[in-house]
Simulated scan of single mutants.
Amino acid sequence: MTHRFPIKEIARQAALGTATVDRVLNNRANVSPQTRLRVASAIEELAAQEVQLATRGRRLFFDFVVEAPARFSREVKAAAEAILPQIGRAVCRPRFLFQEIMDEDVVVATLMRILKRGSHGVCLKARDTPRIREAVNSLAVAKIPVVTLVTDIGDTDRLTYVGLDNKGAGRTAAYLVARSIGDVAGTVLATRSHERFLGEEERETAFVEALTRRCPKLRVMGVHGGSGVSFETSRILTGAIGGILDLRAVYSMGGGNRSILETLRHNGIRPDVFVAHDLDQENRDLIADQRLDFILHHDLPLDLKNAFDAFLAFHKLASEPVQRRITAIQVVTPENIPAPIRAI
């Protein structure tokens, strides 16, 4: 693996030991594919950020810990890299750890490793559980600020939340469903990737309350699980939809929409309207083919800019006070699909 960076620098970027990086670079045995990928990604990140190193200023390392399907994690990384050239007050070096399924033990262990080695800030998308809250508070005690992304972690000393208004998103989805199908009898399927994501819980609660008020004849059936991953989403949904004969709408809060559509089709079910979240490539393709009716989109690069601004303010490199930073919801249809995020 060719590179021009010191092993110690690659190890720091990849959050691995120097001996592990040395084994990867020299193509030695007993190294997992995931570790090789982390080293390769670290070298790419160092190369992409090299132009920043000529900028005078303090060098800051930020860790992104994200549980999400790969299609969404790619959008997060692209958004972060698109924002970096706009930051002139410091040299910001992101380190990314993305996993499609990251249970409580993995998240806690990851945050404890970050606590041990040090960081200038953690951008976190994770489940809201007692042990993860405790880990977030441990980072805060150590003066490592935590910014939650898209889904919050309740009752912690995290620095701030960045992302969309999840309750507003739920109400918007209810409005779109009500306007599309009217006050008719039937079932609305509300899917979440996991029951412990606070943001999705807020979306569902607001959706149910608003839809019940607008369309009291509709019955909302919640299905939770699958982590937005195709196979698990299909398996859980298959076990839940038996006997549904009157599906009117789907509100998908946690992704896996191609799998949801295929599972419904396999069971002979076709909803009248489908509302989804996030403009990843899968959803772009689906809405362009008019298999999705609406996507609730928010400005992910702005979310990441808000996260970096919050970190810089914490380190007294920006004058803006840290506050809750909410991005507006945009309703995307097949007629107004925004351009994809491009790193500069």
Results as ranks from 00 to 15, higher is better:
residue 93 R to E: 04
residue 158 R to N: 03
residue 235 R to W: 04
residue 124 L to S: 06
residue 151 T to D: 11
residue 203 R to H: 01
residue 210 A to C: 08
residue 104 E to N: 08
residue 301 P to L: 15
residue 292 L to H: 02
residue 131 R to Q: 13
residue 142 A to I: 09
residue 269 I to F: 13
residue 232 E to M: 07
residue 340 P to Y: 03
residue 2 T to E: 15
residue 45 E to P: 00
residue 268 G to P: 03
residue 164 L to M: 15
residue 154 G to T: 15
residue 47 A to V: 01
residue 2 T to A: 14
residue 212 T to H: 12
residue 284 R to I: 13
residue 255 G to K: 02
residue 91 V to K: 03
residue 333 T to K: 06
residue 119 S to H: 07
residue 300 L to A: 12
residue 209 E to D: 14
residue 97 L to I: 03
residue 60 L to N: 05
residue 40 A to W: 13
residue 5 F to M: 02
residue 142 A to Y: 01
residue 323 Q to F: 00
residue 73 S to F: 04
residue 221 M to G: 06
residue 91 V to Y: 06
residue 292 L to W: 07
residue 150 V to M: 11
residue 43 I to H: 14
residue 233 T to E: 04
residue 163 G to C: 07
residue 152 D to T: 10
residue 336 N to A: 01
residue 8 K to V: 07
residue 64 F to V: 13
residue 54 A to V: 01
residue 65 V to L: 08
residue 3 H to G: 07
residue 259 S to W: 09
residue 197 F to G: 14
residue 214 R to K: 09
residue 170 G to W: 05
residue 13 Q to E: 04
residue 183 D to R: 09
residue 172 T to R: 00
residue 296 L to M: 06
residue 36 R to N: 05
residue 27 N to F: 13
residue 49 Q to H: 10
residue 180 S to A: 15
residue 212 T to D: 08
residue 88 G to P: 09
residue 199 G to K: 01
residue 90 A to D: 06
residue 238 T to L: 12
residue 230 S to L: 02
residue 128 D to Y: 04
residue 336 N to W: 00
residue 14 A to T: 03
residue 155 D to P: 09
residue 25 L to Y: 03
residue 208 V to K: 11
residue 172 T to N: 02
residue 326 I to H: 06
residue 165 D to S: 08
residue 320 E to Y: 00
residue 152 D to F: 02
residue 271 P to Y: 08
residue 204 E to P: 00
residue 195 E to D: 15
residue 147 V to F: 05
residue 48 A to W: 06
residue 98 F to K: 13
residue 224 H to E: 03
residue 293 D to V: 03
residue 186 G to Q: 11
residue 283 N to F: 03
residue 299 D to K: 06
residue 140 A to Q: 03
residue 271 P to V: 14
residue 317 L to E: 02
residue 310 A to I: 01
residue 200 E to L: 10
residue 239 G to F: 02
residue 292 L to T: 06
residue 53 L to W: 09
residue 284 R to Y: 12
residue 103 D to L: 13
residue 109 A to N: 13
residue 55 T to H: 09
residue 324 R to H: 09
residue 10 I to K: 01
residue 337 I to G: 04
residue 30 N to F: 06
residue 284 R to S: 04
residue 139 L to T: 08
residue 135 A to Y: 00
residue 61 F to M: 03
residue 196 R to S: 15
residue 226 G to F: 04
residue 188 V to L: 11
residue 303 D to V: 06
residue 102 M to Q: 10
residue 175 Y to L: 14
residue 125 K to C: 08
residue 156 T to Y: 08
residue 318 A to G: 01
residue 8 K to L: 03
residue 184 V to G: 07
residue 88 G to S: 10
residue 128 D to E: 02
residue 197 F to T: 14
residue 224 H to P: 06
residue 172 T to M: 08
